[in-house]
């Protein structure tokens, strides 16, 4: 189980790639999928490396990313 999960809202993504460059762990990459506007959307290429740090969400200009982090065992954050 990775520490973090990035959910991509496919229709909001414009494929600018800023999140790919910003991710400190090389989690994200372009998928082979295109959305209805014709943009090649981002996906988690290496989900196992995700820490849920949310840097990708911060730099995403289209608010296309939702980030989840694993709750620490024995309590909530």
């Amino acid at each position: 189980m990775p520490k973090g999960i990035v959910i991509v809202e496919k229709e909001r993504c414009k494929g600018c790639g800023l999140c790919i460059e910003a991710c400190p762990f090389g989690v994200l990459g372009f998928s082979s999928d295109y959305n209805s506007s014709g943009y090649r959307v981002v996906h988690m290429e290496h989900p196992e490396k995700c820490t849920g740090c949310a840097v990708c969400g911060y730099v995403c200009p289209d608010v296309a990313l939702e980030i989840y982090r694993r709750e620490p065992v024995g309590g909530t954050v």
Binding site: M1, I5, A54, G57, L65, E66, I67, Y68, R70, E71
Partner: peptide
């Protein structure tokens, strides 16, 4: 077991 830490305001 996952909590949302970032998303659309």
């Amino acid at each position: 077991g996952y909590i949302r830490v970032f998303g659309k305001p």
